[in-house]
Simulated assay, not measured.
Amino acid sequence: MLRFNSWLGAVLLAATGYAIADEQAYKGQNLLQSGVDVLGQPLVYPSGTPRVTSDIITLAPGEAGKPHIHQIPMFAYVLSGVISVDYGDHGVRTYQQGEALLEAQNVVHFGFNPGSEPVSLLVVYVGSTELSNAELP
C-alpha cells in the first residue's frame, strides 16, 4: 500500500508539473475567454466534420455589411478602427481597435463602420463542412 501511495503521489506530481509546463509553453496576452456570445447566449458547436476558417474583413467609412446570421461560433478581433453591430431587438453595440468578441449566434445582425477611417477585423469561424460561416436570412 505504501508503494502504491508513493507511486500515486509521483504520478500526481508529474501531472501537475506537466500542467505547469504547458501553461508556461509560451507567453501571450489573453484576448478573450468565454462560453457565451456578445448577447450572453451559450455557444453551440455544430455537429459534423470540423472546419475552422479565418478571414480579415475590412469596411470603408460608412460601409455596412448585409444582415446575416451565424449558426456557428465566430471569434472577432478589431485590428483597426471602430465597428458597430446592429442586433435588431438586442440593440447596437460598438467595438474598437483591440477589442475581442464572440459574435452573436442565431441572431440576425449586421456590422457597419460609423467612423471616418476603415475598420479591419480578424474573424475566426469555428464551424463544420456542413454549415456555412454566415447565411443571409
Rank of each mutant, 00 (worst) to 15 (best):
R3F: 14
V82H: 05
Q29E: 14
G81A: 08
I57K: 04
L31Q: 14
H90L: 07
L101I: 06
G65H: 02
F110H: 14
G17T: 08
V92R: 04
L32N: 06
G9D: 09
V123P: 01
S128Y: 00
N5A: 14
G81R: 00
I57L: 13
H109W: 06
L101D: 00
V108H: 02
Y95K: 02
G115L: 02
L8P: 07
D89Y: 10
G65Q: 05
P46D: 03
S84H: 08
V119F: 03
G62T: 06
A134R: 08
A25Y: 09
L12R: 12
H109T: 00
V38E: 04
K27N: 11
P73W: 00
F112E: 02
P50A: 06
H109G: 00
G28A: 15
P137M: 07
G35D: 13
V36D: 05
G9V: 09
T53Q: 10
S34R: 09
L8G: 08
E130C: 08
A100K: 02
V11W: 12
P114G: 05
V119N: 02
S116V: 11
Y45A: 05
A25E: 14
V85K: 01
E99K: 03
F110T: 11
Q71G: 12
Q105I: 07
F112R: 03
A15T: 11
G115R: 03
I56G: 06
G91F: 15
A104Y: 01
P50W: 12
S6I: 15
K66S: 12
N30M: 13
A25C: 09
L136Y: 15
V108N: 03
K66Q: 13
G17K: 10
F110Y: 15
Q41P: 00
W7Q: 10
Y18R: 10
G9H: 11
G111A: 04
F112M: 03
I56R: 15
T94W: 04
G98C: 11
G62H: 10
Y18L: 12
V11R: 12
S120N: 04
Y77G: 06
I69G: 01
G127E: 00
A10H: 14
A10G: 09
W7P: 05
S34N: 10
R3I: 12
Q97C: 06
G127N: 00
Q33L: 13
Y87N: 09
G17V: 07
G81D: 04
M74T: 08
V38F: 07
L13D: 09
Y125Q: 01
T129C: 07
P137Q: 07
E117V: 07
G48V: 05
A60N: 13
P67F: 10
D89E: 15
S47K: 14
K27T: 13
F75T: 09
Y87W: 05
H68F: 13
Y125G: 01
L39G: 00
I72S: 01
T58M: 04
E99Y: 09
A64R: 13
G115D: 05
N5K: 15
L59T: 02
G88R: 08
H109P: 02
Y77H: 13
V119A: 01
